[in-house]
Design a protein around this nucleic acid. Structure first.
Length: 431
RNA sequence: GGAGGGUUGGCUGAGCGGUCGAAAGCACCUGAUUUGAAAUCAGGAGGCCCGCAAGGGCUCGGGGGUUCGAAUCCCUCACCCUCCGCCA
């Protein structure tokens, strides 16, 4: 959610910056108009309320003197009606305003490259492309040959297409990767592990920006008013909803393993075989809360943390900064981390590392309060925190890159060193 | 799921429907005493929102209601505790 004041004061600039992400025809003028109306109503309400509350003691005194005070009572009743009226219109205007505000995406970061999907900038490429002296198979063929994952009809029997079942060493590989990622981030990068609910209510989904605009993307449990989470970002960011974080605790860093559920409703036509696009996948997510002035630096730090698992697994990958038109609704700036699929030559997005500035914090009302300097009469500084998150990492596509990169001509795949402790020291998988 | 009890400021804990934004204690801040600290004494101070300020509004778990007036009465929701039932 954008700051109403900012929209009012810099309407042109907001519109221009939002246009760079392709957001046109937003109700910005309407928002400014409603905000002005809101202020007026608030004033009228305060005024009437003030008058009414001053009448109370006077009535009491009159009654102590044994008077009826019926004229005062009537006056008070009248004011009460006025207060109610003002309050009702105030609430209505506020609700309208809020609703409009929820539809406006975040402002892109001034340094984000301009353009659309194809204008992302590859910031750097890490590792070497894998060379084979035989014809490499793609991950689908490898899964079929090794039996690590069920991709076909037998798997879709359970919940439909685009749900996978990992079997035997494949299931074990999933667990190993989750543990590897979590251990790395908690032990070496200082993240606090969170194991949240895999469902969330409407308010929680609104806080991070999934609702109201992207209801189509979510699996819902209408009977209980719940949604399956599309990412751990949702429950973890909302941990602090409607709270004030003591400034000295910032920055906060959380990591969480959860399955992620996505309907991929907008992805029709992009259907792919195999593990590349699923309705349910496992992911370890990193979430950070920080002071506003720290978010750029925190974004770089988060990026380093998120890519570290790929480095340790010895995979070839690149970092791409998304152009403004490709940014997610709530993001101000975003790096995608893409692992290389040597069999197809594709770059697979395994992580999206975003900074949301105060956009999510406003929606979810997450603020900080710095401690007052001792002895100083100045007020403690308060404000909305900045939130950031990134996958660290999403499993299925990492598995694709892993199997393809480390495949052997005679079948199976070599386990990279870093992962062996999580697989009983095994050096080979699916052989 | 059923029955009962509870939720007050950072904490503990009072609070006849009318100067209650709320006693008291602890913690906190300022000053005095002290070489410094502790102890003691005297003061001060809840939080949030709008506002440059003056000022105003909101706030006793959330929401609604009764009343001229609600921390106090009623309804409802959430959470906590106890008992019963069920259960990995």
């Amino acid at each position: 959610m954008l700051d109403r004041k900012l929209i009012a004061e810099k309407l042109e600039e907001c519109a221009r910056r939002l246009a760079t992400r392709g957001a046109e025809g937003l109700p910005l003028e309407e928002i400014v108009r409603l905000d002005r109306r809101r202020k007026e109503l608030q004033h009228a309400f305060d005024e009437a309320r003030n008058q009414q509350s001053q009448l109370g003691p006077r009535i009491q005194q009159a009654m102590k003197r044994g008077e009826e005070a019926s004229d005062l009572k009537a006056q008070s009743a009248e004011l009460k009606a006025a207060v109610r009226e003002h309050e009702a219109s105030l609430r209505e205007v506020e609700a309208q305003l809020h609703e409009l505000l929820l539809t406006v995406p975040n402002l892109p970061h001034p340094e984000a490259p301009l353009g659309g999907e194809d204008d992302g900038v590859v910031v750097r490429t890490e590792g070497e492309p894998k060379e084979f002296d035989f014809e490499p198979k793609d991950h689908v063929a490898l899964c079929e040959a090794s039996g690590l994952a069920l991709l076909g009809e037998r798997a879709s029997k359970l919940a439909g297409a685009s749900f996978v079942t990992f079997l035997g060493e494949g299931a074990r590989l999933v667990r190993a990767l989750i543990n590897f990622f979590l251990d790395l981030h908690t032990r070496e990068h200082g993240y606090t592990e969170v194991s949240p609910p895999f469902v969330a209510n409407r308010e929680t989904m609104t806080g991070t920006g999934q609702l109201p605009k992207f209801e189509e993307e979510l699996y819902a449990i209408p009977r209980d008013g719940l949604y399956l989470i599309p990412t751990a970002e949702v429950p973890v960011t909302n941990l602090w909803r409607n709270e004030m974080i003591p400034g000295e605790r910032l920055p906060l860093a959380y990591c969480a393993y959860t399955p992620c559920f996505r309907r991929e409703a907008g992805a029709a036509g992009k259907m792919t075989r195999g593990l590349k696009r699923l309705h349910q996948f496992d992911k370890v997510e990193l979430v950070r809360f920080c002071h506003p002035e720290a978010s750029d630096e925190q974004h770089q730090l988060l990026l380093r943390h998120a890519e570290e698992p790929l480095r340790r697994l010895g995979l070839h990958y690149r970092i791409k900064e998304l152009a403004t038109g490709d940014l997610g609704f709530a993001a101000a700036r975003c790096y995608d981390i893409e692992a290389h699929s040597p069999a197809t030559g594709e770059w697979l997005e395994v992580s999206s590392v975003s900074t949301f500035t105060d956009f999510q914090a406003r929606r979810a009302n997450i603020r900080f309060k710095d401690p007052k300097a001792p002895g100083s009469k100045g007020k403690a500084r308060k404000g909305f925190v900045h939130t950031l998150n990134g996958s660290g990492l999403a499993l299925p596509r990492v598995i694709v890159a892993l199997l393809e990169t480390y495949q052997r001509p005679e079948g199976g795949a070599v386990v990279p060193e870093a992962l062996r402790p999580y697989l009983d020291g095994r050096e080979l998988l699916g052989a």
